[in-house]
Write a protein that binds this DNA or RNA. Structure first.
Lengths: 347, 347
DNA sequence: GAGCTGATGGAAAGCGCTTTCCAAACCGGT
DNA sequence: ACCGGTTTGGAAAGCGCTTTCCATCAGCTC
């Protein structure tokens, strides 16, 4: 049905081998004359290579897999975009899988990507701190790597993979220091679920910074939740309730360690009639595109999402060096102060 | 290197054919006894099918392609998520390509997806009104369809493809009527580039509705721009400048036909110190996740983005019916009025 | 011009799977 | 016990490409 390489070869009056060599760069060269003839035939017939066949013959596909929680989330969306662009530049297509952070689905996804013989897998959201899960994922990834697959992780996923080091900890620490410098002393922190490495790293950064200046979040002022708008909202509500019930003063600064979360926090505060930054300063993390349009404009830590995705691909595709030492690339985090933070009221 | 079906067959003491039939549902059945033995062997050896090989043999891959402008844009991100989920449910993986709406890249992407023998292509953003471009894309898609590929479009891309009909026009009309009902008579409209079908449809809806009530945007009050935050911002600036220069009164309502655009509009208005909805009401379109968190909460038209993606996949994958008549599925648009719109001030 | 080297085209052997096509086995009915 | 009809397993032929291996040929040197 479709036009095959064989058709092209016949049309050009050359052998299959020559046609293959002419159209898809191989080690062997073909005289320019023949080569041109083949290309002309290919054009004339509208030849389109059969990628699966090529993948089979070369035993390596022309695709890159991306594993993330949710493409519709701006954080992952940004990364997916970067991966897609870098892949395209390398002549590859990218397979995107949203797992909602469910380890079972991640395992499943890794297997499928492996089955598809993707050239590399970019891990964007699956850093679990739960050992039993990590082990299964690692096994699946190891099996993949043994068969020549490359794995690159965004954010630390252990020493086994090339990784794009993201300054989560440093960024969180800087943010905390920035707020402390404004005069804040009563902090509340909203971070992600314990199993997420990114969340833990950011939390560590905050806690370290606080410790440095002799502070720590009060009882109940450290909340874990999913990195979603509703999660942030619920966590903020809990913080407010705890403060009310225990009679402790409200925190003057709330650090929501993801912008999406912060959006929920702002919503909750607005509903309760608590002014930001008047009564409470709020900061997020990631600097998603709309962060500056929230009410009020969100202070946050900027991460070069797309570039992180691109770096991961570059790392995974880099020539040779079958990972003696896993390589590393860095993404810098930059504190961006906007309207949602201010000096605390002096009481 | 990798475990092949042959290894599994040998290990289970059956033929290659039997192993294939046992593991991947085929028309022919295998006795439960043998089947179980094969499955056990596959498990024991850690067999993972080789998708490219399967694709080659079946001459149909286990992937779905999605063509969109930008995964990182919430509108497309939502669609991509829906497509990915539906694909996963069908045991497929999804190949996502961001083209930034560049026709050349779209053409390129279609060719690549075709080369990869994706089972279906979902068109999410490429409705051009430019005939010469449309024709090239249509040709590429036709070639793809001739070889058994399925194409489903989100939003009208012509009668050649199964399409998920989105109530862009109706939604825009309802939105317009809603604002008119609040008392607005001076409208400004910011829509997308002429080549985008969605943009044109929405604009038509607005214009029709206005006409119905005997109105039309004044000179310079209809602006075209890219559907981006910056585009929206620039367009709003132009509207303001035109009004100022010509001495005409400011519009009381601005319809930005994409939420992202509306975010830019709000930003510009804020910078100029024009209160929303006090002096000007603003509405968007799409109801992206953060629309409700903008300042002020954005009135808009809700579109079921993920469901649209899922419907497209369902349409493309539906059994038999090699499109005698292209089928259609609908996505309803619902007006959501929030804080960015209010009755105009009575002067 | 014989003999060598190096470049280049072609035949054919896979890559791992699906699926036809056969042959063998098995069923009930007589 | 025999026979058509139905299952079911296996051998083998691809699917469209890459790549090894050979044969050929041009260009040299002596």
């Amino acid at each position: 049905m479709a036009v095959t390489l064989g058709d092209v070869a016949r049309h050009a009056g050359v052998s299959l081998a020559t046609a293959s060599r002419a159209l898809n760069g191989s080690a062997r060269s073909v005289t320019e004359e023949l080569s041109a003839k083949v290309r002309a035939s290919a054009d004339a017939l509208g030849y389109l290579p059969n990628a699966p066949a090529q993948a089979l013959a070369r035993s390596s596909g022309a695709t890159i897999g991306v594993l993330l929680h949710d493409v519709a989330d701006p954080y992952f969306g940004g990364i997916a975009r970067g991966v897609g662009d870098a892949a395209a530049r390398a002549g590859l297509l990218s397979l995107v899988t949203s797992t909602d952070g469910d380890p079972r689905r991640e395992l499943e996804a890794i297997r499928m990507l492996h089955a598809h013989r993707v050239r590399a897998i970019v891990l964007a959201g699956s850093a679990y701190n739960d050992v039993s899960v990590i082990q299964q994922l690692d096994e699946a990834l190891a099996a993949y790597q043994e068969q020549g697959g490359r794995v690159a992780a965004i954010t630390d996923h252990g020493p086994l993979y090339d990784t794009v080091q993201v300054d989560n900890k440093e960024g969180a620490a800087s943010l905390t220091h920035s707020l402390a410098r404004l005069g804040h002393r009563h902090f509340a922190v909203i971070t992600g679920p314990e199993r997420m490495r990114v969340a833990e790293d950011r939390l560590d950064g905050v806690l370290d910074a606080l410790r440095e200046i002799g502070l720590a979040p009060a009882e109940g002022m450290l909340q874990r939740t999913e990195f979603t708008r509703e999660g942030g909202r619920a966590a903020m509500a809990r913080i407010l309730d705890v403060a009310r019930e225990s009679g402790t003063p409200l925190p003057t600064a709330v650090l929501a360690l993801s912008d999406i979360c912060a959006a929920g926090v702002l919503a909750e505060l607005r509903d309760r009639g608590i002014s930001v930054p008047g009564e409470i300063s709020v900061a997020g993390f990631d600097d998603i595109p709309l962060a500056t349009d929230l009410a009020p404009a969100l202070s946050t830590v900027r991460l070069p999402l797309a570039r992180m995705g691109e770096s991961a691909v570059r790392l995974a595709l880099r020539e040779g060096g079958r990972r003696e030492a896993a390589e590393t690339s860095s993404a810098y985090a930059e504190v961006v102060l906007r309207d949602s933070t201010a000096a605390p009221r002096v009481d």
